[in-house]
């Protein structure tokens, strides 16, 4: 994308009305361009002012009571990331395939389907609307329903994040038969959504582990548990990384996972340009 393209899309980008692919491209450009980031910041400042120019209306005092009651009923989300304890890194026993992956295109990467990504976001929004209308618009006492609402909200938030980068993962040679397709959506702040279909059930003692590749290093993003139909829909915390991953990968590891991959990947996806 040219600087002009990026600056021309600044308002749509900030207002969340760009499609996921274009938004990811803009985010990617902004990560490395001070001039465009400054311009986007100025547009953001103007939009912020627009938000403050609305007619003045006063909330009732009772609303404050509801707000101050929140901490006693709502748990906080911890800052910490990894679901696998990161041991002191040991030198890899196998050649680091992930360095090569980050540096070169993988021949079998599936083409990005912008339309199906949008359909997925719409589907999530619809599910969220359904769950919310079931629960009414009030806080729900039923913990599992509230958890569902929170999960859907977080998933939608990931997909709407301005720094969203998407990855379409492809099955690697030597991977188990039947792995059909997988996608990852990564944001720095709001977490990571990973979806896959067709993951075969693993023998006892083995688990699927998700990795993000940053600067040719693999960082664990967590373990995956497909259902009996081989589908995974996971919302994970983004590991503490300095930059958006160049690639995302899945390996099969011993139960409990490892701090570094010990086998070549079965699925790999490069960040969409």
């Amino acid at each position: 994308m040219t600087h002009e393209d990026v600056q021309a899309s600044a308002s749509e980008y900030l207002l969340g009305s760009l499609d996921e692919v274009t938004a990811a491209r803009v985010a990617s450009h902004l990560a490395g361009c001070d001039a465009c980031r400054d311009e986007v910041r100025e547009v953001a400042r103007t939009l912020d002012a627009l938000a403050r120019s609305v007619p003045e209306v006063h909330p009732p005092a009772a609303l404050r009571d509801r707000i101050v009651a929140i901490p006693s009923t709502v748990p906080q989300v911890a800052a910490v990331a990894p679901s696998v304890a990161i041991a002191r890194p040991r030198p890899p026993r196998i050649a680091p395939w992930f360095a090569a992956v980050a540096a070169a295109l993988v021949a079998a990467v599936a083409m990005w389907q912008a339309a199906s990504a949008r359909a997925e976001v719409d589907r999530l929004r619809q599910e969220l609307a359904d769950v919310r209308s079931m629960a009414g618009q009030t806080l729900v006492a039923n913990a599992s329903l509230q958890q569902q609402v929170d999960d859907f909200t977080r998933q939608t938030n990931v997909l709407r994040a301005s720094d969203l980068v998407s990855y379409s993962l492809a099955r690697q040679p030597g991977a188990p038969e039947g792995v059909v397709r997988a996608r990852a959506y990564v944001t720095q702040q709001r977490g990571l959504v990973f979806t896959a279909e067709g993951l075969p059930t693993l023998p006892a003692g083995k688990v699927y582990q998700l990795w993000v590749i940053v600067d040719a290093k693999a960082v664990s993003a967590g373990l995956l548990s497909p259902d009996s139909a081989g589908r995974v829909y996971a919302l994970l915390t983004t590991p503490d990384i300095a930059a958006m991953p160049g690639a995302v990968a899945v390996t099969i590891e011993p139960a409990g996972g490892l701090s570094q991959p010990s086998t070549p990947p079965i699925l790999v996806g490069i960040a969409q340009q």
């Binding site: 909330p59 609303l63 404050r64 707000i67 101050v68 901490p71």
Partner: peptide
């Protein structure tokens, strides 16, 4: 971030009106 619930009231006192006014609009 340290779990101080009273801080939420303070945050609301500073920004609650602006949030509410935008939502209402």
């Amino acid at each position: 971030a340290h779990g101080d619930g009273a801080a939420l009231g303070d945050l609301y006192d500073r920004h609650g009106r602006t949030v509410f006014a935008l939502a209402a609009r």
